[in-house]
Design a protein around this nucleic acid. Structure first.
Length: 213
DNA sequence: CAGTCGATTCACT
DNA sequence: GTGAATCGACTGA
């Protein structure tokens, strides 16, 4: 277990920038999930940017709904959605309030509280897989819709916090098309990851589901 | 109000 | 590599 000495939350201004600036800048930073059983800390290794109402791949593309409302709110808050009838995924809202941009946290390295994460991720064959993929990440951190709207920059010990600290050097950042996203045809290279990191999830192009008979 | 499908994962071949 | 699991949000009639 690696210690995470400084638990100061990142300033909200960090998130109040264009999402394409924030996304790569999150790589290498640490997210802490405080649970009743103890903290779980995750070093972020893979993210994707979703750029507001003009991005066909974004949940905000067709405007504000009951589900995506948090995306339109202030930066630094957490947007959690439920998908495929069984999974949750989590985002950090970016840009000025009203712009509806966000960064999807796709993968990370559990650096503290791995014993807690393993309890939620029974099928993980090793610790690299604990948070290798967005739904796995949310599962490992016990994140669901109850945490939608959480302020990750709050000084008041919120259940989710992004810490100050340093991101990886830009020469370690790679980028490419977003994984499994319908609508954008894979044209936006808005997925960012840390080069050669073993916790980064594999790329998959979007495949329309075969129709049920 | 019924039909469609998803920012996915897992078991199985 | 393929298909199932599983349900709520969204769409269009």
């Amino acid at each position: 277990m690696i210690a995470t000495p400084d638990r100061t939350p990142l300033a909200r201004e960090f998130f109040d920038r264009p999402v394409l600036d924030v996304a790569p800048d999150l790589l290498g930073r640490v997210l802490v999930r405080t649970t009743p059983d103890g903290p779980i800390a995750l070093r972020i290794t893979e993210v994707e940017a979703y750029d507001g109402e003009n991005d066909p791949g974004s949940h905000a593309f067709r405007g504000r709904t009951a589900r995506n409302g948090v995306m339109f709110g202030p930066p630094g808050h957490v947007y959690v959605y439920f998908t495929y009838g069984m999974w949750h995924c989590m985002n950090l809202v970016c840009g000025p309030e009203g712009l509806a941009s966000a960064v999807l946290l796709r993968a990370g390295e559990v650096i503290e509280g791995a014993e807690l994460a393993r309890k939620r991720r029974i099928s993980a064959r090793n610790d690299k897989e604990l948070a290798k993929g967005p739904a796995r990440l949310a599962t490992a951190l016990d994140v669901d819709r109850a945490l939608d709207g959480t302020d990750a920059c709050s000084p008041a010990d919120p259940p989710l916090t992004v810490l100050t600290g340093t991101s990886v050097h830009s020469d370690q950042v790679r980028n490419g098309p977003r994984t499994g996203v319908a609508g954008d045809g894979g044209v936006h290279p808005w997925r960012f990851w840390i080069a050669d990191d073993p916790t980064v999830s594999p790329y998959r192009a979007h495949v329309p589901r075969r129709r049920r008979t």
